[in-house]
Write a protein that binds this DNA or RNA. Structure first.
Lengths: 110, 110
DNA sequence: TCATTATGTCGTATGTTTGCGTCATAAAAC
DNA sequence: GTTTTATGACGCAAACATACGACATAATGA
């Protein structure tokens, strides 16, 4: 019943990036990381209205898609944005929208 | 158990836009509409490997978020991209990424 | 009128995401 | 060595998404 693999690679990748951004908590986490340079997972769950467990899961998701990096420092983990990767993702979205808008779409009304 | 409403309006809206793009079928539909000016729902399900019912559902989703418009022409419905809305959405993503990248994030390593 | 064509809607099965409590682990402090 | 602190992993329940067949509707044409 799962059919995503029937679509082309590029579409699948863009969909995965979009999926990573498809929850307000993850947007909020990215915002927070952008503002506060680096921070640990515990800090973040103080800032957003979800449990530490849930925040941790969202962090894992963002890490999986490459939006953020986590570097271990003793007991703590410093999460921060992966700016290089973010630039790539930004570019991918831009290209997609450019492609959609490049064809001056005629008006549909008959 | 649903907590999205705890986040701010802007984050919620961006998340919804991202969600609309979070399935390769919907990316493929948008691509197809961009290439082929306008078309009917049946046309689209010939082009992508899903049933007409499922395509119809994805179209409804895209319409709900404003990516596309559908204008009725007799028995047929002409779906096409909503270019004005698309420009808005494009801008929203650009702004978001600009914000993330505007703070020259320090390196996390101690 | 009756069949055909184009399309939406409903119900339903299966799969995925979200959210959290609880437990496990591992460094550091005492 | 025991406690504290910071964190990930596991397991579960509720909610949501995906996919489709079957039915409903409504315009057109024979």
């Amino acid at each position: 019943m799962i059919k995503t693999e029937l679509f082309n690679q590029q579409d699948q990748e863009l969909a995965l990036m979009a999926k990573a951004l498809s929850h307000p908590a993850r947007i909020a986490i990215l915002d927070f990381l952008a503002q506060s340079s680096c921070c640990i997972s515990g800090d973040i769950s103080n800032e957003i209205p979800l449990s530490r467990t849930t925040v941790s899961q969202h962090l894992t998701e963002l890490k999986k898609m490459g939006f953020i990096q986590g570097t271990v420092e003793g007991v703590k983990i410093n999460y921060c944005l992966d700016n290089e990767k973010l630039k790539e993702i930004k570019l991918a979205f831009e290209k997609f929208f450019e492609k959609l808008l490049s064809n001056p779409n005629p008006i549909c009304e008959v």
